[in-house]
Write a protein that binds this DNA or RNA. Sequence first.
RNA 1: CGGAGAGUAGCGCAGUCUGGUUAGCGCGCAUGGUUCGGGACCAUGAGGUCGGCGGUUCGAAUCCGCCCUCUCCGACCA
Length: 573
Amino acid sequence: MALVRASQYFLPTWKEDPAEAELPSHKLMLRAGMIRKLAAGIYIYLPLARRVLHKIENIIREEMNAIGGLEITMPVLHPAELWAETGRLQDFGPILGRLRDRAGREMVLGPTHEEVITDLARREIRSWRQLPLVFYQIQTKFRDEPRPRGGLIRAREFTMKDGYSFHESKADLDRFYREIYQAYLNIFHRCALDVVVVEADPGLMGGSESHEFMLPSPYGEDSFIQCESGDYAANLEGAISVKDADPPEPLLPLQEVATPNCYTIEAVAKFLGVPTRKTAKAVFYKAGEELVFVVIRGDLEVNEAKLARALGRTDFRPALEEEIKEIGAVPGYASPIGISRDGVKVVVDDSILKARNLVAGANEEGFHLRNVNFPRDFTADIVADVAMAKEGDPCPRCGAPLRIQRAIELGHIFKLGTKYSEAMGATFLDRMGKSRPLIMGCYGIGVGRLLAAVIEAHHDEAGIIWPANLAPFQVIVSVLDPKQVLLLSLGERLAQALAEAGLEVLLDERDQSAGEKFHDAKLLGIPLLVVVGPRAVGQNQVELERRRDGEKRVVEAKPELVVSKVMELLQGA
RNA sequence: CGGAGAGUAGCGCAGUCUGGUUAGCGCGCAUGGUUCGGGACCAUGAGGUCGGCGGUUCGAAUCCGCCCUCUCCGACCA
């Protein structure tokens, strides 16, 4: 039986918006007494938040268990050597929280657990007969993010459900991937969230396929691109861009033109009176010893995630002016024509393929070339799509315009393949007795972020509006003047009856003004309010008020009647 | 890491430009009383290293320097 007395509980609510919060979910969680900040991006979860988190976590558990997931708990502290094995000790960089134990051993605070689970797998999994195996945990992660923001939306210390699956074949991973995809939809649906599933960039996680589960929100920390007709949605990092081409035109001869003080595409285009899409832009990166020379249509931007894929490396940075000059290119007037190709990798975006008679730099201060054409005038080491998709671009599937949406990334699932198992030697004997690396997938949900997202999706000016299945309490029984013994005892009886009927009940018998109690009830977002006040009780009645729509009922103050009416109203909450 | 802003009582803020009684206001908190249907009222009271350190000055919340913390924008973000 679940009956909590407010006077003995911890409800540190605030009347005013805190100065430090910007997002509705952040403000409301502070105001409702759910969280308190310890340091930037590091929060204490108070009792009210814990109640909701338990429900969210249990939904996740049920759905994970239903597809064969086995719950485990892995350590927060990992030996750094494990991370060195996969190279991620380096790759994660300063995001990785690091420390030494008393013996001087390097340790890391786990930002994720591929290394640990793969270590477990290589010790324990020997035969295909043990497969498939799906482990998951709901546990604290630490990432020393450069910029935490928005309360629980992007914290440094946060709770994550992370799952890892091991398979004997790609086909079995594919099968399980479809199951977990559906399980994720179930989880978010049960949390009353309308998520959009977007194709994501598997990037350097390796593997073939990856999806993100996004909740569209103006306060999102992420964005994705979506086709109006709904047949394509992708993370911006991986979004395929279709480049509309101009109609073909005859190739004209190269022609040098003076363009004084035109150091930017906009300036050149304006000076020569051509649209920016009729220019070729040069963008430079330094990757190790190599200078990467990207040629892209002037109206487009380079997508560095796509460039990383085209190059097969991520260790590059924008080049310095001196580095550009070293190869004979002139910053502001650069083009791939007439430069030294020694130690230079020319990457041509596919937007250049169909473009004709472009304006490009002449590698001479104050001059550009007209009528530059690929591949007539220069060659490429790599031709690839390295452009950032943008608002209004045609959808790669149906051609309808694409729109950019801000969103909260709630979940991310990956087909990892053998990246970790190979790096760490996690192998098994297959049906033919042959040793092969385990085939893996990994699957994350930001639990705290999910909690915040539920509030983002379900609140109004007065406070939170919990979906009934996530609410910390389903009913709040508010005794307006608890010093009147009759009112208090009636409130107690009703609360008891409701609790015995299986509901979680908060009995607000605090000696506070009616207004405060009404406001708190709304702020806390409890689906149903039972008002035990002198006015109605005088006529042997109590009032019910539904949080979601303000729907009110008056009921005779008999426990059975109140219970049945509460149940009825909760159906619509 | 770049840009912007902020740090004064538990919360929200004024005071700082132009140095000068005992550092204020609202809310909250404690005690007593009056109230009791949509954030009541009266009285009394507690609560402050004015983010820290250093400097200037007869005198610093206020001026100067360094540092710390927090927020927002950007970069970044399996």
